[in-house]
Simulated assay, not measured.
Amino acid sequence: MVTRPPTTQEIEAYAATFRDFPKPTSAQLLGFEPVEIDVPGQRIVIDFVATDRMLNPAGKVQGGILTAMMDDTMGPLAHIMSAGKMLPSTTDIHTQFFRPCEVGRYRCEARVTRMGRTMCYTSADLFNDRGQKVASTIQTAVMLPFAPDREK
């Protein structure tokens, strides 16, 4: 368990390696592409791509997919802000949808609202390729110790 909060230097060093991490299959499905990591501002920007495999019967991107894009932005942010020592496990997520979404590119901007030793509160906004906000979410996550198995 982390006994002290990481320093800004530790977080920045870990953030610098983030783009080189292998993408989980869920991130690959969503077209996950990091754009910006702002350690002092405790925020991150990630691009996604919605494909025709993500449509609901109405021909729009399914809301759970949009929520997954925001979740896949807030989770890495919380992990980075712990300097890689903790992984967030969502305990609550609340999403608001503002407009129907089409196949295409989306940008998610997430920020830490508050981060403690065991809990992290984040929020995110998702934008379409015209810069229109399509959804917002707030999330509560419990932070769990993380020790990656380097031999896999």
Rank of each mutant, 00 (worst) to 15 (best):
E109Y: 01
T113V: 15
R117A: 12
P76G: 08
Y121G: 04
A78E: 10
F127T: 02
V49M: 14
K23D: 14
M115Q: 13
M143A: 08
R4W: 08
V39S: 02
H94I: 04
V2D: 08
R111Q: 10
M74V: 14
F48H: 01
F18P: 00
E102L: 05
G131S: 00
P24W: 02
L55S: 02
Q62C: 09
V134T: 07
S123V: 05
Q28P: 03
V142M: 12
T25W: 10
S82Q: 04
A78K: 04
Q96A: 15
H94F: 09
M115H: 03
Q96I: 13
G75V: 06
R105G: 03
F97L: 13
T25V: 11
A27Y: 08
G31A: 13
D125Y: 00
G41P: 10
S89M: 15
G31Y: 11
P5I: 12
P40H: 05
R117L: 10
P6V: 08
L126F: 14
L66G: 01
G75K: 04
R4P: 01
M74S: 10
T73E: 07
T118W: 05
L30H: 07
T122Y: 06
M81H: 06
R130E: 14
C101E: 06
M69T: 04
F146E: 02
F97P: 07
L66E: 07
C120Y: 01
E12P: 04
M119A: 09
A124M: 07
F21M: 15
A68I: 09
T7R: 07
E10Q: 13
P148M: 13
P57L: 12
L55G: 03
G64P: 10
T51W: 02
T91P: 06
M143D: 08
T51H: 06
A124V: 06
A135P: 10
L55K: 03
D149H: 12
M81D: 05
Q132N: 13
T51Q: 05
V35G: 06
Y14W: 12
Q132I: 01
G31N: 10
G104P: 03
Q139A: 13
R111S: 13
V49E: 14
A83D: 08
D38W: 02
F127W: 08
A50G: 05
M54L: 15
H79M: 09
L66F: 07
D71F: 01
L66K: 02
N56H: 08
A50D: 04
C101N: 10
P145Y: 03
T7K: 07
V103M: 09
R19M: 13
M69S: 02
I11W: 00
T140A: 11
D129E: 14
P24A: 09
M70E: 13
G75H: 06
D92S: 11
S123M: 12
G131P: 00
L126W: 12
F127S: 03
K60E: 00
E151W: 00
F146P: 01
N56Y: 06
A50R: 01
T25S: 12
I138W: 00
D125K: 01
R19W: 13
V61W: 08
I80S: 03
T137S: 15
I11H: 00
Y106M: 02
E151F: 00
E10V: 02
G31T: 11
C101T: 11
I93R: 03
D129R: 02
